[in-house]
Amino acid sequence: MAAGLSATSITVSLRGLNGSLVENREWTASSIDLLAAAAPWRTFRWYRGQRHYSGTYWSATVRDHVIYESRLELARLLFADFDPSVRSIVAQPFLLKAEVDGAVRKHIPDYLLVTDEGPLVVDVKPLHRLSKPEVAFTFGWTREAVEIRGWKYEVWSEPPSVELENVRFLSGYRRDWLFDRGLVDGLRGAELDGVSLRRAAVSLPGHPEEQVRSAIYHLLWTGELTVDLDRPLSPVHVLRKTA
């Protein structure tokens, strides 16, 4: 844990979507609206022999592309997009600076999530690297800086593989304009609580089973229906309606 961190020593810099640069603003005085409207502080890089896979992901939450710098960051992005409590996602949202133990430190978090429970700042790092002293030190003072203003901070590592594969599969059904609105509304009005996915797929006569199943996957993505994601998704999974 970092020592001697003072709120008055913390500043934030960010880039506006119009290319403008805001530098060294007081961290605790910078509004969430300002930070949530930021463009990525740095863009990802491509070079020969690169060890990480960078790219862009179209997010149903923000209705736009969001960048990621590794497959692990993409995994966290998928989970954020899948979470109905997340209202906004900003990649590499800002540069934090703070005086820590007599020296100026800098750090760019991986994501800022605006959620129903408040802002969440996320750093993504493989589990095997969390024990490195320099990583632990950086995440320690970053946590302090975030929590100083009453926000939440998360260090995220590899998720359970089955859950990730299920979320990755359901993300293929996130684009709402691809689904027949009448079919989706029909499923919303059907008694599907406690029904297996296999039975639900044939619950709307007159609609092809594959289309109904795809619409069910869309409602699983939006969170209107839920299933147990701790085992591979299958026709025997039992659907639950959310409140």
Rank of each mutant, 00 (worst) to 15 (best):
P159Y: 08
L120K: 13
A200D: 02
R87G: 00
P133H: 08
E165H: 12
L95A: 02
P93R: 05
V195T: 07
E158H: 08
G194Q: 12
L178E: 12
V100R: 02
L120I: 09
W151T: 09
L95Q: 03
I108P: 06
Y153S: 02
L187H: 10
G140V: 06
T142F: 04
R188G: 10
Y173E: 06
E154Y: 13
A75R: 02
Y173N: 07
N166F: 06
D180W: 11
L78Q: 00
F94Q: 03
L178Q: 12
L187C: 08
Y153L: 00
D116N: 10
W177H: 14
L127V: 14
L130R: 12
K152P: 01
V122L: 07
R87V: 00
I89Y: 09
D110R: 06
G150K: 01
V167W: 02
W156D: 10
R181Q: 14
V195P: 00
L130F: 01
E210S: 15
D83W: 11
G186R: 11
G102N: 03
R188T: 09
I148H: 14
V167C: 01
V162Y: 02
W177Q: 13
A91F: 00
H207L: 04
V146D: 03
L164V: 02
S88V: 03
E154F: 10
A91K: 00
I148W: 11
D180C: 08
K106Y: 15
D81T: 04
L113Y: 12
G102S: 00
D110V: 04
L95F: 01
S196K: 08
P93F: 08
F79D: 04
Y153H: 13
R188A: 05
F169W: 04
V121I: 13
